[in-house]
C-alpha cells in the first residue's frame, strides 16, 4: 500500500496559512465555504458593476458570452440552453467558480460576502429565490437547484460497450450508401488557413445558420 512506501524526504511541510491561501474548493455538502452572506439586492449592484458587461444585466448573457439564467425545461430539446438555473446541479459549484475564477480577466478579487451576493443574484435571475433571500454559509448547501437530480454516473460500460464490441462486418455490410450531409453546405470552415478569422454569417450567438458550437 502507498502508506508503506519508503519516503525520500523531499518537499517540506505546508504551513497552515499556505494551505488556507490555496485551498478554496467548495463541495456540494458545503465543506470549504467561508463564513459570510449576501442577498440579491446587494448582488444586483455588484453584478451590474463587475459581471453584466459580459453576462448581461439579468444574467441573460451578451453575444457569445455565457448565459447564466434561463433555459428552464430545454434540456431534452434540439438546442438545449444550459444555465445555472436549467442545468447546474449544485449552488456550491457556482459559489466556488465565481470565487476562484471570476470576473474573467480579474479573478480572485471578490470578498466572500460579494460572492454570496452575486450567487444570490444569479439564483434570483433564474426565478429561484426572492430578492431578499439571504444566502449564507449556513444555508447554501441545503439549496437544491432544479437539475440537481439530472446527472448519472458514466454508464457506457452497460449501455455501449457490449453493443460496440461485436465482431465487425468486413464484406457486403450494407446494400446501399448515400451521402446524407455535406460540410461544404454549411461552409463554416475558416477560408484563410492562417487565421481562421472569417466568421460565417450568423455563426455566433443564437439562431445562426451554423450548427451550435460545442464549447471545447
Amino acid at each position: 500500500t502507498p502508506a508503506l512506501a519508503e519516503k525520500l524526504g523531499l518537499g517540506r511541510p505546508a504551513l497552515p496559512e499556505e494551505v488556507a491561501a490555496w485551498n478554496h474548493d467548495v463541495r456540494p455538502d458545503g465543506v470549504g465555504l467561508p463564513v459570510g452572506s449576501g442577498d440579491a439586492i446587494d448582488g444586483e449592484e455588484i453584478f451590474a458593476e463587475k459581471c453584466a458587461s459580459c453576462h448581461g444585466d439579468f444574467a441573460e448573457g451578451i453575444g457569445n458570452w455565457p448565459k447564466l439564467a434561463g433555459g428552464m425545461g430545454t434540456l431534452n430539446r434540439k438546442d438545449p440552453l444550459k444555465t445555472v438555473g436549467s442545468y447546474w446541479p449544485h449552488v456550491s459549484t457556482l459559489w466556488d467558480y465565481v470565487n476562484r475564477s471570476m470576473p474573467f480577466g480579474n479573478a480572485q478579487t471578490l470578498a466572500p460576502d460579494e460572492v454570496y451576493a452575486i450567487t444570490a443574484y444569479i439564483l434570483y435571475s433564474n426565478d429561484l429565490i426572492e430578492d431578499d433571500y439571504v444566502l449564507s454559509n449556513e444555508n447554501l448547501a441545503e439549496f437544491k437547484l432544479p437539475n440537481a437530480d439530472g446527472f448519472f454516473l458514466d454508464n457506457r460500460a452497460e449501455t455501449e460497450y457490449a453493443q460496440f464490441s461485436a465482431p465487425a462486418c468486413m464484406e457486403n455490410c450494407k446494400d446501399d450508401v448515400k451521402i446524407t450531409m455535406h460540410a461544404t453546405v454549411l461552409d463554416v470552415t475558416p477560408g484563410d488557413p492562417t487565421d481562421g478569422s472569417a466568421a460565417p454569417a450568423g455563426a455566433s450567438g443564437e439562431g445562426g445558420t451554423a450548427a451550435p458550437a460545442a464549447e471545447p
Binding site: D25, V26, R27, P28, L75, N76, P80, K82, V84, Y87, W88, P89, H90, S92, T93, D96, Y97, S101, G150, F151, F152, L153, D154, N155, R156, E215
Partner: peptide, 23 residues
C-alpha cells in the same frame, strides 16, 4: 468536489435531457 469543469462542462447530455457525469 463537483467543480464547474465536471458539472456545467464535461457532462454529456442525453436525448431525454439527463446527463452523464464523470465520463
Amino acid at each position: 468536489v463537483e467543480s464547474r469543469e465536471e458539472t456545467s462542462k464535461y457532462t454529456d447530455t442525453m436525448e431525454d435531457g439527463t446527463s452523464r457525469k464523470f465520463t
